[in-house]
Write a protein that binds this DNA or RNA. Structure first.
Length: 330
DNA sequence: AAGCCCCTCAACCGCACGAGT
DNA sequence: CACTCGTGCGGTTGAGGGGCT
């Protein structure tokens, strides 16, 4: 038995919103709020719309402080950086860009930013940046220490620091897109720790814990081996130590572009940093095509590799002091 | 001027999850 | 524990506008 539809599709209006509908919705929410029930809202507000449609319209368009228009280069950089780290988690990326919606960012990425990046690397150059991940992993110095991470279920990523990072090279890109200095306060966690002057909201660094989003919660499952980085209510990004790993080895996570490699050894997918070390709990249950090759659009993966690749080191360098993002936690 | 193509972005769709019962 | 319901998310679609021939 299939799920009941969220609304009677025959009796709801679809398609573009009229100014009148916008006004009705805005007026109602201004007066009464959403009431925590989007399904009932359209009827109460006198709208012949599906609740989901109302929610979307509000969140993406009518909500106060929505920023429309051109994305700045800082925003571009943040999007690229986060995309390379967490993939197409648009809501999380949006949480780092005040005023931007996930839909906006998704559209922007798909229509412009991806092409912009591809433009940075013409096809001939692109090849040199397409890293065979197993090669990367093999080439990584065995002495380097690393962090592994995994996806738990479909919605959580577990970073499992096994020791402090040392394998992170400076993030580097040729274009001004990614090479100009940080000047934004839009994503404080992407700035260097030294220049971190405090987030506008909901970044809790007091206890060296990073929290995304306004409703973020933070928890530690065992106090010594796990640190959650949570966004909103249900999507937890856990930075946790492997079983028995000493807490002091979790001193530093560098939120750069090189943290995440994908190790496809024996079919199990692992998400790790630098040397690809994996400590058992780094197993990825591949999320819907996010990292994998089978269902993932190759272009997407290619872009991620471009972002993640270090290039030849000459024309591809980033200012180390500006870009070596560090996130400390204990 | 007309027709075609491409791009953008608002909106829709289906799925997964958490809460409630 | 199983089920329903509401919500949030990411992927996809398609209307409309602009550019090109």
């Amino acid at each position: 038995m299939g799920r009941a539809p969220c609304c009677d599709k025959a009796n709801v209006k679809r398609g573009p919103w009229s100014p009148e509908e916008d006004a009705k919705l805005k007026e109602y929410i201004d007066k009464y709020g959403t009431g925590g029930n989007w399904i009932a809202l359209p009827q109460k507000a006198g709208l012949k719309r599906c609740g989901k449609s109302c929610r979307l319209r509000w969140l993406n368009y009518l909500r106060p402080n929505i920023k429309h228009g051109e994305f700045s280069e800082d925003e571009d950089r943040i999007i690229c950086s986060l995309f390379a780290t967490i993939g197409s988690r648009w809501s999380i990326i949006a949480a780092q860009l005040p005023g931007r919606t996930d839909n906006d960012i998704k559209n922007y990425w798909n229509t412009k930013l991806k092409k912009k990046l591809m433009g940075i690397f013409p096809p001939s150059q692109r090849k040199t940046h397409q890293l065979n991940l197993s090669t990367v992993l093999q080439a990584s110095p065995s002495s380097s220490t690393a962090t592994s991470a995994s996806y738990k279920g479909s919605n959580s990523v577990y970073y499992t620091p096994t020791s402090s990072f040392t394998g992170l090279e400076p993030i580097s890109f040729t274009s001004s897109l990614l090479s100009s200095n940080y000047s934004t306060n839009a994503a404080p966690f992407l700035q260097s720790q030294e220049s971190f002057v405090g987030p506008p909201k909901s970044y809790n660094l007091k206890d060296n814990l990073l929290i995304f989003g306004s409703e973020a919660s933070c928890s530690s499952s065992d106090g010594s081996s796990n640190n959650h980085i949570s966004h909103s209510k249900e999507r937890d990004y856990e930075y946790g130590g492997g079983a028995g790993a000493p807490a002091e080895t979790y001193g530093e996570v560098q939120m750069g572009l090189h943290n995440c490699f994908y190790n496809g050894v024996d079919g199990s997918q692992r998400f790790s940093t630098s040397n690809g070390s994996d400590h058992g709990n780094g197993l990825i249950e591949r999320q819907n095509a996010m990292w994998g090759g089978s269902t993932l659009d190759y272009g997407l993966e290619e872009i991620k590799q471009l972002i993640s690749s270090t290039g030849d080191g000459s024309s591809f360098l980033f200012d180390e002091h500006k870009t070596e993002e560090r996130l400390s936690y204990y």
